[in-house]
């Protein structure tokens, strides 16, 4: 991450530092609504970054990341609701189970040479059958959902992830910052270079002595574990979990749009992407509500149009274009 900082010029460093400080002190000025939107943005920065590691760096397309969010959320919520085990402990089994699913998908895909879109289909399949499975697990409420009771008396118990909007804002902020730092660290590591090689050309990567199977497994394991932590956050922030919502394909898509729009395989792409898409989405919701339009598809159509425009104008993502236009990146000498 030191090299990430060094690779930027003064202007880039100032901008990043300014954004950090602004976000750190945002709650001073922000209303509750703005704060909730910012929390959502930072959540998408976090999970987008997790997906970006796997797709943007290692080149493995997952369209089923909702699986890991769902597993992380359900495991930690069930442990809390049924056994009173707090999320700071519950996060470990949550991550473990999500990583086990990730390992199963990775092993099947990478061991048997299922690549590209076929690998993506495999990830969708796992998310879908897990969704159907959870519909029938009575222990976690089945299709009727699992609810974390909202208890006024527990507000402020940060060790149980019970807190105010402000608390969740800072939690999301920490997660997002850590995810960016981790990505920066990995991107400049030996493993990061191995991922890039695999993304670009697997056969050539193998010829350079890279154990392709393990490098890809590491990508899935890291990505699924990170995403599961996002799931824990989601569960305790929203307090209600439904299989049909949590594991749905649309949730997987929602999570990957930020990195795609912002710039795949870049450290700040998922950040920029989330800051563009999430506010636009929220704005469209409130606009259609105010205008009294009762067409559920209207938001999706506008959103789709905006996406198409961005992808048409900057095919490699907003961040690479932006950082070049604003002169953030320094050419290495």
């Amino acid at each position: 991450m030191i090299s990430l900082w060094r690779d930027m010029n003064r202007r880039g460093q100032v901008t990043v530092a300014l954004a950090f400080v602004l976000l750190l002190f945002a709650p001073v000025a922000a209303t509750r609504y703005v704060l909730s939107v910012l929390t959502l943005i930072l959540y998408f920065v976090y999970v987008g970054q997790a997906w970006n590691l796997m797709m943007g760096y290692a080149g493995q397309l997952s369209l089923g990341h909702a699986l890991y969010v769902g597993l992380g959320g359900y495991v930690s919520a069930a442990l809390w609701v049924h056994f009173g085990i707090g999320p700071w402990l519950g996060v470990f089994p949550a991550v473990g189970i999500a990583a086990a699913f990730g390992a199963a998908i990775g092993w099947l895909g990478f061991r048997f040479g299922i690549e590209g879109v076929y690998f993506a289909l495999l990830t969708i399949a796992f998310a879908e059958f897990t969704r159907i499975g959870f519909d029938h697990i009575g222990f976690v409420g089945g299709a009727g959902g699992l609810f974390i009771p909202y208890e006024q008396s527990r507000l402020g118990e940060w060790w149980n992830l019970r807190g105010s909007q402000l608390f969740f804002y800072y939690l999301a902020f920490c997660l997002a910052v850590l995810a960016v730092l981790l990505t920066a660290l990995l991107a400049r590591s030996r493993l990061g270079y191995q991922w890039l090689a695999i993304r670009e050309d697997e056969t050539a990567a193998r010829a350079l002595g890279i154990d392709v199977f393990w490098a890809k497994m590491k990508a899935v394991l890291i990505s699924s574990s990170m995403t599961a932590i996002g799931g824990v956050f989601y569960a305790f922030y929203y307090n209600s979990l439904f299989p049909a919502q949590l594991f749905d394909m649309s949730r997987s898509i929602e999570l990957i749009l930020g990195p795609i729009v912002g710039g795949l395989g870049t450290v700040f792409g998922p950040v920029v992407g989330a800051f563009i898409l999430t506010p636009v989405g929220e704005l469209l919701i409130s606009l259609t509500e105010k205008a009294g339009i009762n067409a559920p598809g209207a938001k999706a159509i506008f959103f789709g149009l905006i996406l198409m425009t961005i992808i048409y104008l900057v095919p490699t993502g907003v961040w690479p274009w932006l950082s070049q236009r604003l002169g953030f990146t320094r050419r290495r000498s």
Partner: peptide, 28 residues
């Protein structure tokens, strides 16, 4: 080397070679 060359197209020339150099080196 490959008969039909297979460089990593999206990476810089230096990063291409860097990947080879990292096989037996852990220090970046």
């Amino acid at each position: 080397t490959f008969q039909i060359v297979r460089p990593f197209p999206g990476l810089s020339v230096e990063d291409n070679v860097m990947i080879g150099a990292l096989l037996h080196r852990t220090d970046m």
